[in-house]
Every structure is written in structure tokens, then in C-alpha cells.
């Protein structure tokens, strides 16, 4: 009898811990969500857990703001193009590094990894010059040009470990049948790594979507090319001198909810991809 009682107590404590962790992870998100429905007046009163007079005014304001919608479009374009390009370029490199034998393979892999070691601020000024020389300063293409610095090493690294994990027989059979390396790559190996491609593509997308420093500096002359993080960091309301926090949170929700949904849908794959990249690496 006593044993059973202890069991129940253990379970209760366990689920209390689980709930505590969930609240810890989600509460700030919930707080942003709830704030986005509050009126301007309520912001200055004592904090309340749920909105006292829920309103959709903040969302209306944000979505009617042409500039914000434009930055949303920029972000989607930049993040989408960057992840497709780095998948394309990165999968080539990963195939070579993971499946083909040539001298200097390991050294190259480490050179690529070392690209992730320096802070992005340290190449800002050098990239600034390059972007300016290219004539694309202040356009979304300046970002598409520079984001591979973050997305490519990571893509190559994760995809290489996936390619290595595939059995060697697959490719040998194809090569014996007379297929070229390119044909084996395109028709046999690439379809097999589709799950890894989804993961790395998604991670590149999230990284580019969230990037702030380059987006801030390479679009500084042209607000029309700004991405969402920059817009949110600089957000200001129309009619109040105070920071329009409720509106910022509404904007943040619009930006974050699609990302969170993507992450929730693909969570298994993301975890697999990250662990392949970080733990095996």
C-alpha cells in the first residue's frame, strides 16, 4: 500500500517537472502572444496575465503598414533564395567530401568548419567593401550574396556526414553499370538524402530569416530592402512617442508563428540533422 502511494507521488512530481519545463520554455512566447492583444493603455498598468480588453487593433496596424509587409516579403525572398542556393552548392561539395577519395579531404572539411569560428562582425567591414564594389549595396541581393558565410559551412558539414552514412555498395553498383559520378549523385544519392536536404534547408532558412547584423548594415541606405529583424528592432508607431510595444509584439507574432509551425512540423528531422552536425562532427 505504501509502495503504491510512493509511486503516485513520484509520478506527480515527474509531471510537475515536465509542466515546469514546458512553462519555462513557452511562457515568454505566451507573454508576447498575450501582449499582442492588449491595448496601448493596458501596457502601462500593472501587468496582467491575460489581456483585459483583447483587441485586434495591433495586428490591423501592423498588416496595414505597407513597410512591414514589404520587409516580410524581403525576408522570405532572401531566406528562401539563400537556402536553395546553399543546398545546391553545398550538396555538390558534400558529395565530394563524403563519397569521393582525394588528397586534402579532411583538411578541406576543417577549413570549411573554421569558417564558422569567427564572429560575423569581424568580416563586416571587408564584406561591406565587396558588397559596395559589386554595386548591389542596399538590395536584398547583398544579403543573398553574403549569407552563405553562415549557411554553407553548416550545410556542407551536415550533408557530408549524411553522405558518409550511406552504404558504399549503392554507388559502386551504379558505377559498374557505367553511370558517371554525376549521374550516380543526381539519380541515386540525392534522392536518398532528401530528408537531410529538408533539414539543412530548413535550418539555413531559419538562420537567414533571423540574421540581424548584415541585414542592418547592408540595407542601411534603402529601407525598402530591410528584412524583418531590422524592421522589428527599429519599429516605431505612428501616433505615440512611446515605444509601441503591443504593436511590436503583434509584428513579432506574425514573424515567429510561421517559423514555430515549421519547426513543430519538422521537429524530428531538425533534431536528427542537428545531432548529425554537432554530435558526430
Amino acid at each position: 500500500m505504501k509502495k503504491k502511494w510512493l509511486d503516485v507521488l513520484q509520478r506527480v512530481i515527474f509531471y510537475a517537472l515536465v509542466v515546469f519545463i514546458a512553462v519555462y520554455a513557452l511562457f515568454p512566447f505566451y507573454w508576447a502572444f498575450s501582449t499582442s492583444f492588449k491595448t496601448e493603455n493596458e501596457m502601462f498598468r500593472r501587468a496582467s496575465y491575460i489581456p483585459q480588453e483583447p483587441t485586434l487593433k495591433n495586428y490591423q496596424y501592423v498588416l496595414r503598414n505597407g513597410k512591414f509587409v514589404l520587409t516580410l516579403r524581403n525576408s522570405a525572398f532572401v531566406a528562401g533564395t539563400t537556402s536553395v542556393l546553399s543546398l545546391l552548392v553545398g550538396s555538390f561539395a558534400a558529395y565530394a567530401l563524403g563519397r569521393l577519395r582525394f588528397r586534402g579531404r579532411t583538411a578541406l572539411l576543417y577549413v570549411i568548419l573554421s569558417m564558422t569560428m569567427f564572429p560575423s562582425i569581424s568580416i563586416l567591414s571587408g564584406l561591406y567593401t565587396i558588397v559596395q564594389e559589386s554595386g548591389l549595396f542596399g538590395t536584398p541581393f547583398a544579403l543573398i550574396m553574403t549569407y552563405p558565410v553562415f549557411t554553407l559551412p553548416f550545410t556542407v558539414w551536415v550533408l557530408t556526414s549524411f553522405f558518409r552514412g550511406l552504404p558504399a555498395e549503392i554507388e559502386q553498383a551504379a558505377l559498374i553499370d557505367g553511370a558517371t559520378h554525376m549521374q550516380t549523385f543526381r539519380m541515386i544519392l540525392l534522392p536518398l538524402t532528401a530528408p537531410a536536404l529538408v533539414t539543412t534547408g530548413l535550418l539555413s532558412f531559419v538562420t537567414s530569416w533571423n540574421e540581424y547584423l548584415f541585414a542592418l548594415n547592408f540595407t542601411i541606405t534603402n529601407p525598402a530592402a530591410q528584412t524583418v529583424p531590422v524592421a522589428i528592432a527599429q519599429f516605431s508607431g505612428i501616433d505615440s512617442l512611446q515605444e509601441p510595444i503591443a504593436e511590436i509584439m503583434a509584428a513579432a507574432m506574425i514573424v515567429t508563428i510561421p517559423l514555430v509551425l515549421l519547426v513543430l512540423i519538422f521537429q524530428n528531422r531538425i533534431v536528427a540533422g542537428l545531432t548529425a552536425g554537432a554530435v558526430k562532427g
Binding site: 519545463i21 520554455a25 512566447f29 529583424p229 531590422v230 522589428i232 519547426v263 531538425i270
Partner: peptide, 12 residues
């Protein structure tokens, strides 16, 4: 749930 804080942009 654990991926949610990671997915929110740092600026936000």
C-alpha cells in the same frame, strides 16, 4: 516545445 525558444529570432 523545446525548439520554440530557439526558433524565435534573437532580435525578437
Amino acid at each position: 516545445v523545446m525548439l520554440v525558444p530557439w526558433a524565435i529570432p534573437t532580435v525578437i
